[in-house]
Simulated scan of single mutants.
Amino acid sequence: MDATVLIVEDEPGIADVLRITLKYNGFTVHSAATGREALAAAREHRPDLVLLDVMLPDGNGWEVCRALREERAAEGADDADDLAIIFVTARDAPRDVVAGLALGGDDYITKPFGVDEVVARVHAVLRRTRRRESAATRVLRHGDLEMDESTYSVRRSGQPVELTPTEYNLLRHLLRNAGRIVTKEHLLQHVWRYDTAVSSTVVETYISYLRRKLDRLGPPLIETRRGIGYGLRAPEPDTGGGAR
């Protein structure tokens, strides 16, 4: 399953087992050991699912869950309701399970657990959240650029833009992170699923392909932050100049 999982766990042994198992099963995996690290990692990596320990050194997972959902809602993100959260904890009292689910958790796994159970729960929760996502038309917009995820079509200034699958995936990731600079390493992991050691030349090449296709229909859209990465420029006001 093509998805990104964030593991929030302060016990290194448990975190390592989960990370290795999920990577083996095809997931992109990131980890954090505290609530503060979890929020920072979620902003950077935009996970599809969070495996969230309830007892953390700087607070508890319930507070992190609330903060994760509030942050995405405040951003107006299209995926705000599709972030899946599974609590992982030794606290198995019924009141704890009920409290976790009431606070926005999608599932609750108690320790000790089997890794096969965790993988099965992750798959099941992601199937549910992705069904919610596919039930409605997903349209991403930024200025005069529009991407309809239900038809895999892109238009700028009302004109269709023909993209290859890789160009489409790269542009979709930039659109989903509009307003922020996305690092080359992040793009390699999420668009190409490469390790961070791989050369960033492939990112630069495909950015140039996108620019060539998008800039013929309007002002330059993709911003380069030298030595860091790329992002989408703030939409320019319409001056009536039309396509260039």
Rank of each mutant, 00 (worst) to 15 (best):
T34I: 05
A40M: 14
A41E: 10
A41W: 02
A41I: 01
R43A: 13
H45F: 11
H45S: 07
R46W: 15
D48P: 03
D48V: 01
L49W: 00
L49Y: 00
L51W: 01
M55W: 06
L56R: 04
L56P: 03
D58P: 07
N60L: 02
C65A: 09
C65E: 09
R66I: 10
R66V: 14
A67W: 07
L68T: 02
R69C: 00
A73L: 13
A74K: 14
A77Y: 07
D81T: 05
D81N: 12
L83I: 05
A84M: 03
I86D: 02
F87K: 04
V88R: 02
T89K: 10
A90L: 08
R91D: 11
R91E: 14
D92V: 12
P94H: 14
D96E: 15
D96Q: 12
V97A: 05
V97G: 07
V97K: 12
A99F: 06
A99I: 04
A99S: 13
A99R: 09
G100Q: 03
G100W: 05
G100L: 04
L103V: 05
L103E: 12
L103N: 10
D106Y: 00
D107L: 02
I109E: 06
T110R: 11
F113E: 14
G114F: 13
V115D: 13
D116R: 10
V118D: 08
V118H: 10
A120Y: 09
R121G: 07
R121N: 11
R127I: 02
R128P: 00
R131S: 01
R131D: 01
R132C: 01
S134Y: 02
A135L: 08
A136H: 07
A136Y: 02
T137C: 08
R138K: 07
R138A: 02
V139I: 15
H142S: 06
E146C: 15
M147I: 11
D148T: 13
E149Y: 01
E149I: 00
E149M: 11
T151E: 10
Y152L: 13
Y152I: 06
R155C: 12
R155K: 15
R156F: 08
S157R: 14
G158L: 07
Q159L: 15
Q159E: 15
P160C: 14
P160I: 11
P160Y: 12
L163T: 01
P165K: 05
T166G: 09
E167T: 04
Y168G: 06
L170D: 09
L171D: 05
R172S: 12
